[in-house]
Amino acid sequence: MNRDWQLDLERWLEPFVSALRHKTRARMCPAYIAGLIGLGDRKSVQPMAARHAGVNYDQLHHFIASGVWDAAPLEKVLLAEADRQVGGNDAWLIVDDTALPKKGRHSVGVAPQYASALGKNANCQTLVSLTLASGEVPVMVGLRLFLPESWTSDPARLDRAGVPEDHRAYRTKPEIALAEIDRARAAGLRFGCVLADAGYG
């Protein structure tokens, strides 16, 4: 990979890396992001680690799989950067669904439900997304997993999947969207209008 490109990426990631507040994670974050957006078709941990000279599989896997992170500091930096780039009275905040088709039933939130990407009901995870956009520049500022009632009504399933206690109550997609809009506004994100399809009322 072109070293100048890597240096530019590391400079751009500096505020996000600082928000991690963890020395090892701060070292792994640029390697992981470079692996996701860099050369190579396979974006799983093993091939990404093999392509990066200073990182091995165990280190990169630990970065992804270990423990619960406090996402709030990263989200704060993301909202500030999004606002700097495209925020203002002429910006739009767009609410939408993102469906991730899945087989099986063990991934958190997977259930037969409407998959917007497929245009039909399918086994998938559904996420409520918020995107700040101005002109032709979109910046994703929020992504929250929707838990269907088949999950929230099954405490044993929630336990097996390790769903945190404060995320176990059933919330509709519009309720998730409103909470995300409130979070964005509280952080000072500037936008003139919210757009959503009819599913959000």
Rank of each mutant, 00 (worst) to 15 (best):
M48T: 08
R168V: 10
F191D: 03
I37Q: 06
K103V: 06
N121I: 11
G199S: 04
A156W: 09
C29A: 14
A26T: 09
D83E: 14
G54V: 13
A184N: 02
V86F: 05
Q113E: 04
V108L: 05
Y57P: 03
R105P: 01
G119N: 12
W92I: 15
F146S: 03
D154K: 10
G188P: 12
V17L: 10
P73D: 04
N89F: 08
L127W: 15
D4L: 14
P73V: 07
K43D: 05
D154Y: 08
G54I: 04
V110C: 08
M140F: 06
M140H: 13
K76C: 12
L158I: 12
P47I: 03
E165A: 14
R160Y: 03
A122F: 05
L130I: 03
K76P: 00
L78R: 10
A115Q: 11
V68P: 12
V110R: 01
L36R: 14
A34F: 09
G38I: 04
W5Y: 12
G192N: 07
A19L: 03
L60A: 04
L147N: 09
T126I: 14
L127Q: 09
L158H: 10
E75M: 08
A184H: 08
R183H: 09
G54E: 15
L178M: 12
R42H: 07
W5S: 14
R21W: 05
I64Y: 11
P164A: 02
N56E: 06
E180K: 00
V194D: 05
A99Q: 10
A111Q: 13
T24L: 09
G142Q: 05
N89I: 10
R185N: 08
L100D: 15
